[in-house]
Design a protein around this nucleic acid. Structure first.
Lengths: 128, 128
DNA sequence: CGGTATCCCGGGTGATACTG
DNA sequence: CAGTATCACCCGGGATACCG
C-alpha cells in the first residue's frame, strides 16, 4: 500500500506529504493570520473564530514542525509567546492569499451552484 | 457565534466557506486528477491511492455540489459515469497545480525542518 | 460498473480543570 | 498568559454486503 511510487497521486508523492500536513482549514487560516503580522497565542485564538485552544495549539505545533512559522518565548512574567512567519511559510502564505482572492471572486458562483444542486436534490426527494 | 462579520477570519467570510468545502487533501487530489482529463469512477479510485469508495463518493458529490466538476451518466449497460472539470473547477485546479509545484520545490526544506524539530524534541524527552 | 445501506470502531474534538 | 492533562463523546471513515 505504501510501496508504490508510480504517479503523482501515489502516497509517496511530495504533494501528498504537503497536503497531509497543511490541507486543513485551520492550518491555512493560522498561516494567513500569522503571515500578515506576528501574533501572540490569545490574539490568534480571538482572531480565528471558532477554533479551540487545543486545536490551535496542535495547529501551531504542526506549522512550526514544518518550518512554516517560528515560536519565540520572551522570559517575562508571565511569559509571552510570539508566533511569526518564516520565509518558507511566507512563500506558502502568498499562495493562500491567491486562494483567498479567488474565493472572494468566485463565492457567488459557488453559492449559486450549491443552491441549484440542493434544489434538484430536494425535487428527487419528494418523488420517493 | 455565527452572527459576526467583522474580519477576514469571521465564520461568514468567503474564505471560510471555501476552506470548509475543499480544504481537505482528497478534494484537492480529486480536483487535480479530474482537471488533467475526464475520468470514470473506478479510474479515479485506482489513481488516488488510499481513498475508499465511500470517501471518494462523498468527495465527488461535494465537488459537484460546488460546481467544480460535472457528473454525466451514459445510459449504457452497465452505466458509465464520467466526471469532468468545469471552468470554475479548472480555475481552482490551476492554483492547486501551483501548490503542487511549490510542494515539489520545497519538500526538502519541510522534511529538514521536521527532522530538526523531531530531533530537538527527542532531546527534551530524554531529560524527563 | 457505480454506487447505496448498514454496522462498527478509533481518534479527533470540545469542555473542563489545573500549572508555571 | 500560554499552555498541559484528563475525560467523555460523537461521527468520520473502513469493512462488508447488497442494488440498478
Amino acid at each position: 500500500m505504501t510501496r508504490d511510487s508510480r504517479g503523482p497521486f501515489a502516497a509517496t508523492c511530495p504533494t501528498r506529504h504537503l497536503l497531509d500536513q497543511i490541507a486543513d482549514k485551520w492550518s491555512m487560516l493560522a498561516l494567513i493570520a500569522i503571515d500578515s503580522a506576528p501574533r501572540r497565542f490569545n490574539a490568534l485564538k480571538r482572531e480565528i473564530e471558532g477554533i479551540s485552544q487545543k486545536v490551535l495549539t496542535q495547529t501551531l505545533r504542526r506549522l512550526e514542525r514544518n518550518g512554516l512559522i517560528s515560536r519565540s518565548v520572551a522570559p517575562t512574567v508571565p511569559v509571552s509567546v510570539t508566533y511569526a512567519i518564516t520565509p518558507l511559510g511566507h512563500s506558502l502564505a502568498v499562495m493562500m492569499e491567491t486562494m483567498r482572492t479567488w474565493s472572494i471572486a468566485n463565492i457567488d458562483s459557488i453559492l449559486a451552484a450549491q443552491s441549484c444542486y440542493d434544489h434538484s436534490r430536494s425535487e428527487a426527494q419528494s418523488l420517493k
